[in-house]
């Protein structure tokens, strides 16, 4: 076991796949010689050289178009969109081209590519560099979506994403980049569509993702001290979605809380709540409660941003209130 930061895990995960498979290429803005604006790709340029690790102009459509064209002709590119907010300038390539082309061509083409991007808030960057966009990606048929919450999962899910024959949107929680975690030696490969139960409790189930995972775990500790014992599920993969784990753990406790960084309306928890309502309604002891960022653009000031994102305190208070009403 070694302790790695989330950002170091990015480079290790990409390197693990690039060493294994020469068809894996990596491109994006400042990803090569500069090692990434978040220093998440340090060392890749030095190890794999400028042909396989390519710096691009500020041209998000060209970056993703290049990834798509390379994927349809047999390569397995990893493309970086620096901030997930920037998906808005290249969403056509994502939503209309990459996502639809396999279906439209009756399966003539495959798009084994990964688009990784720094997602979400917590860094006081303001509304255009902080939004959580996992729900944008999740609602497009034809895209897979993963959001790792710790260094080990970064590597394992990166491997799963690169090896998958479909396009995967790989969202990294920017505020987690400096966080550390234990990572085993050797190759790590996960499966897409698998949630992880991080903590088992008997009173309530919390389903969460990305930056919200450590907050949910901290909240669960506090709640346990007050007599509410929670199961915490790290959903990890929105598409495919490990519904069975969520349903099972929800039925076991009778309550489900989602903790989501995305703005309220049509956040991923809405789909989860709807599935739970349809399929295990009679196992519930109370309503599904969603704890989300409000339906607002994210403010820049630290005090305001902290009010907007679900905090440990808000999670504790919300669950406590719901469980005692």
């Amino acid at each position: 076991m070694a302790e790695l930061t989330y950002r170091e895990a990015i480079a290790r995960g990409i390197a693990q796949e690039m060493r294994r498979d020469e068809s894996v290429l990596f491109l994006g803005e400042d990803v090569g010689a500069a090692g990434g604006v978040f220093k998440g790709t340090v060392g890749l340029f030095e190890e794999f050289g400028p042909v396989r690790v390519r710096d691009t102009p500020i041209s998000e459509q060209a970056i993703l178009g290049a990834a798509m064209g390379a994927a349809m002709t047999g390569l397995r590119p990893i493309a970086e969109i620096m901030f997930a907010d920037f998906f808005a300038v290249c969403w056509d390539i994502v939503a209309n081209e990459i996502a639809k082309s396999r279906y439209m061509t009756n399966g003539q083409m495959s798009f084994p590519l990964v688009i990784r991007s720094g997602n979400g808030g917590g860094l006081r960057f303001g509304a255009q560099h902080s939004q959580s966009v996992e729900n944008w990606a999740m609602m497009i048929p034809g895209l897979k979506v993963v959001v790792p919450s710790n260094p080990r999962d970064v590597i394992g899910l990166m491997a799963a994403a690169v090896r998958d024959d479909d396009p995967v949107i790989f969202l990294e929680s920017k505020a987690l980049y400096p966080t550390k975690g234990e990572v085993p030696e050797g190759e790590i490969v996960d499966a897409l569509g698998t949630a992880t139960v991080l903590r088992q409790g008997e009173h309530a189930t919390i389903a969460t993702l990305g930056l919200m995972v450590p907050r949910a775990l901290a909240a669960a500790e506090e709640l346990a001290a007050g007599g509410i014992d929670c199961t915490v599920i790290d959903v990890r993969s929105l598409i495919p979605l490990d519904t069975q784990t969520i349903l099972r753990e929800t039925s076991a406790t009778g309550r489900l809380f989602t903790v989501e960084e995305n703005p309220r309306v049509l956040g991923w928890g809405a789909e989860v709540a709807s599935i739970v309502a349809e399929e295990v309604f009679y196992d519930l002891d109370g309503p599904v409660v969603r704890i989300t960022t409000p339906h607002i653009p994210l403010p820049a000031a630290d005090t305001l941003e902290d009010m907007a994102l679900p905090s440990v305190e808000r999670i504790v208070t919300t669950i406590h209130k719901a469980m005692n009403s």
Binding site: A62, A66, A70, M72, T73, D92, I93, N96, E97
Partner: peptide, 22 residues
């Protein structure tokens, strides 16, 4: 014939990707 694209301009970067692959 690697596709016909109905969003204006979208396929130009995609063609670049195929060319990059070659």
């Amino acid at each position: 014939v690697m596709g016909s694209y109905a969003i204006i301009g979208a396929h130009l970067p995609i063609a670049c990707g195929a060319a990059w692959s070659a």
